[in-house]
């Protein structure tokens, strides 16, 4: 099985927005390796032409009627916010505009 390198661990951690202490990297490599070794068991099954199951419920999505209902008031929306100002959530400066 492929061994996960510390570099890869750092990349995955960056994608998942987790920061790892230097001493966490090696044990995580080991744990992920052992997990991947274990799940590698699946490679022995021939799954050509087998449909993937994403959801067990056979039906199609239930839809809602387009009807507006009640919303939280601003105070309730912000009640749990670690930081807020006025009517808005407060975050460290957002530098670029995302699409």
């Amino acid at each position: 099985m492929a061994r996960i390198t510390p570099e890869e661990i750092k990349q995955i951690a960056a994608l998942a927005r987790l920061s790892l202490a230097p001493e966490e990297v090696v044990p995580l490599c080991r744990d992920l390796d052992s997990m991947l070794d274990y799940v590698g068991l699946l490679a022995e099954i021939d799954t050509r032409d087998i449909e993937p199951t994403a959801q067990i419920v056979p039906a199609a999505s239930m839809l809602r009627v387009d009807k507006a209902g009640a919303s939280f008031n601003t105070a309730l929306a912000l009640a749990n916010a670690p930081a807020s100002e006025g009517a808005a959530f407060l975050v460290p400066k957002v530098i670029e505009e995302e699409g």
Binding site: A88, F89, L90, P92
Partner: peptide, 9 residues
């Protein structure tokens, strides 16, 4: 120099 952004959802 404001170092915060406000978020409206």
């Amino acid at each position: 120099g404001a170092d915060v952004s406000h978020m409206d959802l």
